[in-house]
């Protein structure tokens, strides 16, 4: 019996070595792949990602760097982007600051390489009796993408500010994608409030009976970057040139959205399946601002550390961001720094 077990152990170990070799082989192939210049970029759906969409439709990266192969991935949630980046399948990903911090806290070696957009966010309700957080009853359900998302952290910030208890609404959350949550809000049952982002926020605010009961800025206590670009440090260390090309291309796309939104709306109408005029209204909605500056990082990190969402409390904003002359970090000196 023992002999058989030992034999089997031996066979398994041999198999293991083979798979390990294979994995090695794959990763070396991947490195060659990077030298062959393939860039994998992951984003989500939403107006905040408009500069990325512009780069995609206008083939700006391909034009800036002939021979560069680009793979675009549109994933349905932040957790999926994070996991893909951890597995080495994605070079640059876009997400909000809190999910970035959570993974960084757990030991993922990555940095913010750029800001992307400031957007209005708001908690929208369809009930006439609900006009503020205080009106929400324990049985009312709040739809948001997932715990640990920026929407969730903003809600806890507001709950902390108003009621002194950050997790007050944590038992009322309903995990829903924005389109599902919007439909539930329109249908008028199950969901009392939806922490929404553009374009869903704009669509919802046009509907009678649906109104904002809390804005993201009020919850945060100021302006903040909604979406940032992140990459693992080995990406820009091993591919400095590719990194620089990407940053400059993004700079151009952001400039077009800021200075010539009409042109951008024309280019992007098909992508967002909206007519040009409607898209232009959305792109220039008060509070929409495309910029590579990173704002609010320190306040998010401080709040999340204070509430126990982050365990290692030695974050220095300088370590979290790969700085570049293209953009500024705003609000670094606020608080106890």
């Amino acid at each position: 019996m023992l002999k058989k077990f030992l034999l089997l152990l031996f066979v398994l170990l041999i198999l293991l070595t083979f798979t390990a070799c294979q994995a090695n082989h794959q990763s070396s192939q991947q490195q060659v792949g990077l030298k062959k210049r393939k860039l994998v970029i992951a984003e989500q759906y939403g107006l905040a990602y408009a500069p990325i969409q512009l780069i995609k439709v206008k083939k700006m990266l391909e034009n800036a760097e002939p021979g560069l192969e680009i793979e675009w991935k549109q994933l349905s949630n932040t957790a999926a982007i994070r996991e893909a980046m951890l597995a080495g399948r994605v070079d640059i990903g876009f997400m909000a600051i809190p999910p970035f911090l959570i993974a960084r806290d757990k030991g993922m070696d990555w940095q913010i390489i750029t800001g992307l957009a400031h957007c209005p966010l708001a908690l929208m309700s369809n009930q006439s009796a609900v006009n503020s957080l205080a009106d929400l009853k324990p049985e009312n359900r709040i739809a948001l993408p997932q715990p640990g998302s920026i929407q969730h952290i903003l809600l806890t910030m507001a709950a902390q500010k108003e009621f002194g208890q950050a997790d007050l609404f944590d038992n009322q959350l309903l995990t829903m994608s924005h389109p599902d949550a919007m439909n539930a809000l329109l249908a008028g049952h199950e969901v009392t409030a939806h922490f929404s982002s553009p374009p869903y926020l704009f669509k919802e605010s046009k509907i009678e009976g649906i109104k904002s009961i809390l804005t993201g800025q009020a919850a945060f206590g100021g302006d903040f970057t909604f979406i940032v670009g992140v990459s693992k440090s080995n990406f820009y260390q091993e591919n400095p040139q590719l990194y620089q090309v990407f940053m400059q291309t993004l700079q151009k796309a952001v400039a077009e959205l800021s200075h010539n939104p009409a042109q951008a709306a024309k280019n992007l109408a098909a992508v967002y399946d909206l007519n040009q005029q409607e898209l232009l209204t959305y792109l220039t909605w008060p509070g929409m601002k495309y910029s590579q500056d990173v704002q609010g990082l320190k306040r998010f990190a401080d709040f999340m550390t204070f509430q126990g969402y982050l365990t290692s409390n030695n974050f220095k904003v300088g370590n979290l961001v790969k700085t570049n002359s293209i953009f500024k970090i705003i609000g670094e000196t606020e608080g106890n720094d």
Partner: peptide, 9 residues
């Protein structure tokens, strides 16, 4: 499990 996933745990 879902909560653990979104908190990268």
């Amino acid at each position: 499990i879902f909560q653990r996933r979104v908190f990268f745990d």
